[in-house]
Amino acid sequence: MEIEKGIERLNDQQVEEFVQKNIILTSLDAVFNWARGRSLWPLSSGLACCAIEMMATGASRFDMARFGYEVFRPSPRQADVVIVAGTLTWKMAPAMKRVYEQMAEPKWVIAMGACACTGGPFNESYAVVPGVDKILPVDVYIPGCPPRPEALLDGMLKLKEKIQDPSKARVKHG
């Protein structure tokens, strides 16, 4: 009853202010994306040396948990983002693709390191996929051999931006 009385005493302008301070109008998508971008669960998918940097990023010194990204999942069913950390060989490619397909939507892919971006030092090899974008739709590319943990964190934050505002990064998936 107290509150009702209070509202009765507000004039129009005060009511507007009151509403603006206490009610947020948004689309459901925007809320979900806001949450998704802040709590990405990566799949633990280390393929080569880059995986060591990925582990370092998760450990205490660089502390991925600051951003809400520390929950590395061993199962694709529980993961939002796959960080392809390392060299993808043609032998491994069907397994990687399958794991990606097992992830629930929405899902994202980060290509970590020169190998995942382009094949890196093994670009011309008979055994190595020259860039994971040949088999998966990549959202963020992180160059380096290997990229430092800061670079991976930066990549994850770029992905966060992209998730929250998809218009920010319009890339053609191929």
């Binding site: 069907p94 008979y126 055994a127």
Partner: peptide, 11 residues
């Protein structure tokens, strides 16, 4: 053993 089954040739 190491290469995909559909690989052609012996590198």
């Amino acid at each position: 053993l190491l290469l995909p089954e559909d690989f052609e040739g012996h590198p």
